[in-house]
Design a protein around this nucleic acid. Structure first.
Lengths: 109, 109
DNA sequence: TTAACATATGAACATATGCTCATATGTTGA
DNA sequence: TCAACATATGAGCATATGTTCATATGTTAA
């Protein structure tokens, strides 16, 4: 079989694709997905998130750190509490497309 | 601080969110992203993918298996070769939104 | 049928990841 | 200032993940 045939032309730079994978990696954890999903509704503080998701405060805090460094959520302090909210308009769309995929696959099984 | 306040209402079922995380997990690897990106252009066989991505045949094959079981790619045999192609119309959109996020974040830094 | 090629697969290994625990940091009210 | 509360963070641990190596399976041409 010959080499160097069938090479796609419009391939984005490897580094960009690496960043893209890093972004999706952040979405690829159910705890983080649930946090983001909760925040779609309204901003919440760490305590309420950990109550709502029935997980330890530390676990939530660790994951919020990941979400924050990915630029997906932002935080504001109000007294002792830190309120987190979404920091990206695309989250809605990305979620919707993901759910479309799942729905579509379920229907065609 | 009182419990049970600030509970989001429109939270999808936990199982669905788990599936969503599983889906994004598949996108969350640079090898798989690069495979999908190559396949956006045209179908390719394992050999060409491994040439193009400069990775071992086995690694590519393993990842194609992951992509296939997630319903993201499909395969057809042509002689000795197996040609893989995308099996999901949403991949384009999901990619685009991911890239939008990255682009947006880079601009506001 | 057999050799050569293309792909798939299981085991092994190194690394990455997410949670828990303990503790540090930061904030408020008394 | 100090106790109580809210959050952040580092270490440790168990599990998950991606690659490689060896080998099995599948296909074609001679």
């Amino acid at each position: 079989m010959e080499k160097d045939s069938c090479i796609p032309i419009n391939m984005p730079e490897t580094e960009l694709l690496f960043d893209l994978a890093e972004l999706f990696k952040v979405f690829g954890d159910s705890t983080r997905i649930r946090i983001l999903c909760a925040l779609l509704e309204k901003e919440m503080c760490v305590y309420h998130l950990s109550e709502f998701l029935e997980m330890g405060q530390s676990a939530i805090s660790h994951q919020l750190r990941v979400l924050r460094s990915a630029g997906l959520v932002k935080a504001r302090r109000s007294g002792k509490e830190m309120y987190y909210s979404l920091d990206d308009d695309h989250i809605h769309t990305i979620f919707a497309e993901g759910l479309n995929h799942i729905k579509h696959k379920k229907e065609h099984r």
